[in-house]
Amino acid sequence: MRARFRWGGVSRFIVRRLLLGLIVLFMVSLVVFAATQALPGDPARAILGRSATPAALAALRRHLHLNQAVFSQYWTWLTGLLRGKLGTSIAAQVPVTTLLAPKLVNSAVLVAVSAVVSIPLSIAIGSWAALKRDKIFDTLSSNLLLVLAALPEFVVAVVLVLLLATTVFQVLPAISTIPPGSRPWNFPSYLVLPALTLVIAVAPYVARIVRASMIEVLESDYVEMARLKGLPERTVMLRHALPNALGPVFQVIALNLAYLAGGIVVVEYVFNYGGIGSAMQEAVINHDLPVVQALAMLIAAVYVVLNLLADVATITVTPRLRTRL
């Protein structure tokens, strides 16, 4: 029964999760590869279209190593991936890394802004709704969040444009094209609507989980006991309720941040924001396989890392799980 809290236990856990994450990424790479290059049909034809000349097709096939055996194709691609050589974009004719690097920065800024706004906001709304359960704030916010959560992001985006940029009010730009070469933080007004859309996409879920978790904690025996011990309400909330309520929240936050990775595709497209989301959409339309592969792997990697961070955070807040390591 006597187990001690060991940092060693936690680092072993992290290593194990990292390994698991790597295995997942490996499997993902197989899936991505299979989806893009190993499917029946001719990728070269799909890319160049029906009117392509045989010479062009042959050149492309050589470029994409399609004449090699499947496994060596995969190996070439994987090793290239790990070395940072992501191939050349077929549409833009520049290395994928050159093409994507600035867009990655743009998207990272957008996601960061959205996260920084949505997470504290959701925690605040969720906690307050739980505290004032079944009263006006709770009912109103729950119903509003329910509606917002159901709407697809592109609908929210277009409605926001309608409301704030084109028709009802005209206070914000409808398009957020960052001039190439400049940085998104130099154009803060361009960030507002896309970030707002993402916040609306993510906040309802996090807020609901926070509310549910908080309610469960507030009704728990140990919170009741804390009150019966005569502790001040502030201590009860901050020391007993909140830490235990936040445990399950980290998982959801990670999931939602990962969801944002998919959400930016639509949002960046609507606002013509130059990030990896709109790059993905273009690449798909143009059958630009190297870019598609690179982005898919990138987003999967982000997801795996976020989940790992969420697990570590949960462990930190839940001592009970630590001693089983």
Partner: peptide, 22 residues
């Protein structure tokens, strides 16, 4: 609040769930 824990105390039925696990 000042009364509870000082003048009148409570010993709960299930000690495991009445102690804060964290």
């Amino acid at each position: 609040r000042r009364l509870r824990g000082a003048l009148v105390s409570y010993v709960p039925q299930d000690p495991a769930s009445s102690l804060n696990p964290a």
